[in-house]
Simulated assay, not measured.
Amino acid sequence: MIRGTSVRLRAMGAEDAESLWRWNHDPEVMRWMENPHPQTLSQVRDRLAARAANAYDDLLLGVEALADGVLIGLVALREAAPEKGIASLDIYLGEKEYWGRGHATDAMRTVCRYGFGDMRLHKIELTVVTENHAARRVYEKVGFMEEGRLRRCFRRDGQWYDRYAMGLFPDELR
């Protein structure tokens, strides 16, 4: 487990399927994310059970609140390659009652520290829909900087939105 100030990051498994299934079927949680096609709880459980062990190129961690041990979200570093030293980051908190308490910021800092320290990454990247102001504030708080704009690449409710491409180097982590 990887411990932050208010969260703990740990490997996810089939026992986490119910939470993941519930979050992925909550329109408010999924508002600014690519929605997976609907799946049954059994399909989500099977997918998590069949998932390969965490590895350098595909790290999936559950985010638990330290105060009560509740699984509140997930974070992933993916597409990392040692020769590039760059990984893409995904994060979301599915338990809405934990939103706005600093857990996402702590999870971001914690996974970035792990990526730069233990994985020896040179850079961590992400994209965020321009209208997802709350997520962007979290990313900027941690030190991510806008590097570009991907135009009209995300569709929601019949409208196309842009995404910001953001990046973070080890010396920028706050």
Rank of each mutant, 00 (worst) to 15 (best):
T5Q: 15
R10W: 07
E15Q: 12
E18M: 05
R22S: 14
W23G: 01
N24E: 14
H25Y: 04
D26L: 06
E28T: 07
E28W: 02
M33H: 14
E34S: 11
P38G: 02
P38V: 10
Q39L: 14
T40I: 08
L41D: 05
V44F: 02
L48R: 06
A49Y: 01
A49M: 01
A52V: 10
N54L: 11
Y56F: 14
D58I: 13
L59H: 01
L60I: 09
L61N: 00
V63H: 05
A67Q: 13
D68W: 13
G73M: 06
L74F: 11
E79Y: 10
E79K: 14
A80M: 09
P82Y: 10
K84S: 13
S88A: 15
I91T: 04
G94E: 03
G94C: 05
E95Y: 03
K96D: 01
K96G: 02
W99N: 13
G102E: 06
H103R: 10
H103S: 11
H103N: 12
D106E: 10
A107N: 02
C112M: 11
R113G: 07
D118H: 13
M119G: 01
R120M: 09
L121G: 00
K123V: 04
L126N: 06
L126Y: 07
V129A: 15
V129T: 12
H133N: 06
A135E: 11
R136P: 01
V138E: 00
E140Y: 08
G143H: 05
F144E: 08
M145V: 15
R149T: 11
G158K: 09
G158A: 03
Q159G: 06
Y161P: 03
Y161T: 05
L168Q: 07
F169D: 01
D171T: 10
D171S: 15
D171Y: 12
D171K: 13
L173S: 02
